[in-house]
Design a protein around this nucleic acid. Structure first.
Length: 746
DNA sequence: GTCGTCCCGGGTTCC
DNA sequence: CCGGGACGAC
């Protein structure tokens, strides 16, 4: 029977969509429409009579899951889309464990420890064991995670490597604490489901529960996730994996691109479809991105092509310092809006590290450009959010000792370390939870807890009991949060403080309440506290950032995976920063460099029409000025793709350690001849823009004139008053230190 | 118990 | 440089 062709899909996409039974691997390059293929494939399965609840689609983020569900809603209707299993590995496993967790020692109301909860717990365990000098909770956590990512017992090895002795002592207690609190960490969420897979009853059930399993971003799965997938598709073998080995950028947290590269080793009968037609970028952008990634040896090899011939050359601007870089970008944005009618919403600024965002932000503000920053400190990680949720968690789970410790004195209500120590001792002795211990201490069970302290403990216990009554009376989740913030005294404390920070925290709490309201509406009031808590625990910084209104998007390259923008500014193209040349223990530098290249590839392929690369000659890193040479990735981009802004070579000598042994990149004069900046469509920067309108005192970045050296840009100011000296970059002359009163503002 | 100061550490961060 | 945590002074 001829397969009906689906409108608007190319032959390869069609093959992937219409693939029948058995394993399928889709090697999808950037911008080749893989999401579209996945959606079509799922819709087709439904049209062939597969029940929606027999389909499991695993995405990399919650956001991606939400988008996929939305697209499926349109394709197969709301009812079917609602019944499908669409989510991340973690949310899927949480869902399975809520139903079947008793078999692996979890109640249906178990809670999930995020990184912060984990770190806090480890920190308190380290202190308890007086080992807090030996290792930081963070490093200990990463040792635990590193093992668990591979499905290994963290204490299986003790080869005397860094931290292993401490790990051997602490990890058993860590496990014990989690079990006692009916909690799992992120990795346990998956590992517990793997345990279920070994269960004589549940194992076979899980192996046949889903008729079709589809996994997106397969290059970013770790070993445990791979085992999970293999089990879930064991009986049907209807497994579709989609991914791009060139976009594997998470190996530092356990992703195994081998899962994708060697997929056909475990599934030799897998059909392999390569999607190579890119619908996103111009051929110039694609060529530039390809020129970098093709230096990687360990890759499956694809060659993306596009029929969007030509396009504007990739532009590279080398700025004096990070301020000038930011200024250039801000002006570029203004120019593009003015000249090409672009909106702020069309543009994104990508950077390697969050630390770069600050200066960029400042300049955008000066130029009155709206922006939104994706990521950074997550909304859900904010103290006030975690604190209020701890109240709720303690309400639904009185055994949640970590929550008790977190909030027993938040906001401060006079329950100090001494009292908590006594409560803790009592709890251990009686073998009860801290909350119950506090309750009996408040009744006078422990003589060392004096009446004043008893009263305070009673007040705290009353808050939790009161909240439990509110919950029992049938309050919504939103109402519960309002009550928690109210009864705990949190709101009052923040209102009394009345600082910009406290107002910010109040606003965040209001936002949490409104999220809870949305949750209540969505679940028609049937959603429980535990479910809301789970959703928050599994949420990330990126999920919270919806694009409300048109604004320039700012984020790290990692956060940009899967997104696209007409205009992309890729900032900080300097060796040391990008590629990041940080030495890591136990790392293989070639492998690291390959990952950095993939990161560059991901960043560049986000751009549809225009890609602008910026670098600085010097950058302040943690207060110290550092000279940088341009990123080695710039060397790889063919000159016909790259337009470089003509600029006299600075006369200063960069420190020798930063200099190339031999010039890998042609000298700039040569480049300019070949590309002729003037012939290239440039960005019209708003050169006359003066955001301040005043020139009270000279600051870095300002343009000044010196009687001997001519005009230059201030790089740094040193000292104050009449002694002020300025470090000025005079084009054609170089960097000079001059006394401030010898120059005038231009 | 609370407030201020010092000191350390600081990639990317999904769930 | 910047923030958070730890510790010492009231």
């Amino acid at each position: 029977m001829p397969v009906p062709t689906i409108e608007g899909l190319n032959p390869e996409q069609q093959r992937a969509v219409t693939h029948g039974e058995g394993p399928l691997m889709v090697l999808a390059g950037a911008g080749t429409g893989k999401t579209r293929v996945l959606v079509h494939r799922i819709a087709r399965l439904v049209s062939l009579g597969v029940a929606p609840w027999e389909i499991l689609a695993v995405t990399f983020t919650n956001k991606a899951a939400g988008e996929m569900r939305e697209r499926l809603r349109q394709a197969v209707g709301a009812e079917a889309a609602f019944r499908m299993w669409i989510g991340t590995f973690h949310s899927t496993c949480a869902r399975l464990l809520r139903r079947h967790g008793e078999r692996v020692g979890l109640s249906p109301d178990f809670s999930i420890f995020d990184d912060d909860d984990q770190r806090r717990l480890l920190s308190s365990l380290l202190k308890e064991a007086s080992l807090d000098d030996a290792i930081t909770p963070r490093s200990l956590g990463s040792l635990i995670d590193r093992a668990k990512n591979r499905g290994e017992d963290p204490v299986r090895f003790n080869n005397g490597r860094y931290g292993e002795d401490v790990l051997a002592k602490i990890y058993p207690r860590y496990r014990e604490r989690l079990a006692r609190e009916d909690a799992v960490d992120f990795n346990d969420l998956l590992l517990k489901v793997l345990d279920l897979a070994d269960d004589p009853d549940m194992g076979p059930e899980l192996a046949s529960r889903f008729r079709y399993v589809l996994v997106d971003e397969f290059q970013d799965t770790n070993l445990v996730q791979y085992r999970l997938v293999r089990h879930l598709a064991r009986d049907t073998r209807n497994l579709t994996v989609v991914g791009d080995d060139d976009q594997s950028i998470y190996s530092w947290r356990g992703a195994e691109p081998r899962n994708l590269l060697d997929f056909d080793r475990d599934f030799p009968d897998a059909e392999i479809v390569k999607l190579e037609q890119n619908y996103r970028s111009t051929s110039i952008i694609l060529q530039a991105a390809n020129s970098i990634i093709e230096h990687n040896i360990d890759r499956r090899g694809k060659s993306l092509w596009t029929d969007r011939d030509g396009g504007d050359a990739v532009l590279w601007e080398e700025a004096t310092d990070e301020r000038a870089e930011a200024e250039f970008i801000a002006r570029g944005i203004a120019g593009l809006c003015h000249e090409e009618g672009r909106d702020w919403g069309d543009m994104a600024m990508l950077y390697r590290t969050h630390a770069q965002s600050r200066v960029l932000e400042e300049q955008l503000r000066r130029h009155s450009i709206d922006y939104r920053i994706v990521g950074g400190v997550s909304f859900f990680q904010r103290r006030e959010i975690k604190d209020s949720l701890a109240f709720l968690r303690l309400v639904s789970n009185p055994a949640a000792d970590s929550c008790f410790e977190r909030i027993v004195n938040v906001p401060s209500r006079g329950i100090g370390k001494t009292t908590v120590d006594r409560v803790r001792a009592h709890a251990r002795l009686a073998g009860i939870a801290l909350l119950d211990a506090a309750r009996s201490c408040s009744h006078g069970a422990v003589s060392s807890v004096k009446p004043a302290a008893r009263k305070k403990l009673a007040a705290f216990v009353a808050i939790i009991d009161g909240l439990r009554d509110v919950q029992a009376a049938g309050a919504s989740v939103a109402e519960l949060i309002i009550q928690a913030v109210e009864r705990s005294g949190y709101r009052e404390r923040l209102e009394i403080e009345d600082s910009p920070e406290s107002r910010d925290r109040l606003a965040n709490l209001a936002e949490l309440v409104s999220m809870a309201s949305d949750f209540d509406d969505e679940t028609e009031g049937k959603g429980t506290l535990v479910e809301f808590d789970e959703r928050i625990s599994l949420s990330s910084a990126n999920d919270a950032a919806d694009g409300r209104g048109a604004a320039v998007t700012m984020m790290t390259i990692h956060a940009a995976k899967g997104l696209e923008f007409p205009v992309v500014f890729l900032c900080g193209m300097e060796d040391g920063l990008f590629p990041s040349l940080r030495e890591r223990e136990g790392s293989n530098s070639d492998r690291d460099m390959e990952e950095e290249r993939r990161l560059a590839y991901v960043a560049m392929t986000r751009a549809k029409d225009r890609l602008i690369l910026t670098s600085t000659r010097m950058r302040r890193v943690w207060g110290e000025m550092r000279m940088n040479r341009p990123s080695r990735f710039l060397d790889d981009i063919p000159s016909e793709c790259l337009a470089v802004r003509a600029r006299p070579e600075p006369a200063y000598d960069a420190p020798t350690r930063l200099r190339r042994k031999k010039p890998m990149r042609p000298e700039r004069d040569e480049l300019d001849q070949r590309t002729g900046y003037d012939d290239v469509p440039s960005i019209d920067v708003d050169e006359d823009f003066d955001p301040t309108g005043s020139t009270d005192h000279v600051v870095a970045g300002e343009q000044v004139r010196h009687p001997r050296f001519g005009s230059g840009r201030v790089v740094q100011t040193l000292g104050e008053g009449s002694d002020t000296k300025l470090l000025i970059d005079f084009p054609g002359v170089g960097l000079k230190m001059v006394v401030a009163r010898f120059v005038e503002l231009e």
